[in-house]
Amino acid sequence: MSVIAADRKPASDRKPVSDRKLARAAASSDRRFAAISHALLILWSVIVIVPMLWVLMSSFKSTGEILSSPFSLPDHWRFENYANAWTDANIGKYFLNSVIVVVSALILVMLLGAMCAYVLARFEFPGRRLIYYVMLAGLTFPVFLAIVPLFFQLQNFGLLNTRPGLILTYVAFALPFTMFFLYSFFRSLPHDVYEAALIDGAGDWRAFFQVMLPMARPGMAAVAIFNFLGLWNQFLLPVALNTDQDKWVLTQGMAAYASSQVYDIDYGALFAAIVVTVVPVLLVYCVFQRRIAGSVSQGTFR
């Protein structure tokens, strides 16, 4: 830019000036755009973050404080709210149930989903498209319609109100999405790396677990996070299929806790329970958000 301007100077003195003006105009329009977009982003962040901070703050207050001065800082930090929620409201037990059910389901669905997607994506066999479309149907089928048949099916299997029953349901619920996401991922992986593994002496199993699966790691991480968020927040399925109070998951416990104290609500403990429910999701998301963004772009711009 400056070189060109210097070259032109003898020919016309005005040109570089107008060039500079243009540049300045462009820069100022860039700046205006940046300012507006940042203002919008800040607004959006405030909308999202403030309620969360408010919940966090309120979880350290007493009920009286919350009702009389909802926006002030707590006069002293009542950590006992957490203890109350954890023990009195059984949040601890439900938390453990949630962890057991979601983590088991997650491991199973990732394993099965990856294997299923891999075979559908990379092997030719009769019935391949049929299986694929059945999976597609599974993805489009609203879970509400399946609730009643699911209930009786689990009852017949003797799995109603058991953790394995809920885990299996979660696996079935999350499998189509997992399979679809990984299907496109496995499709995009180079074919010759698989062939190189075969020539290096790997069988199908080893080629899958030691070569193809590690290559699909970014995709696996992304799906695992989506599944974790979805299953952790799952409410409808446990409400219908997991009615034994000892086996409740967090969402059920929360709902029951909120509605059980109609007149004498311990708001502080309630907010503490909410924080306990939300924090694992937030944590998982914050730790892996880079991965999610990365894997989506990797899937598209290979």
Binding site: D192, E195, A196, A197, L198, I199
Partner: peptide, 20 residues
């Protein structure tokens, strides 16, 4: 025979290295 039983080694056009 499957490739693993042939005692051969192959160099591919795109090298096909294991990226991980």
């Amino acid at each position: 025979l499957p490739p693993k039983d042939r005692d051969i080694a192959m160099v591919f056009q795109n090298y096909a290295l294991y990226p991980h």
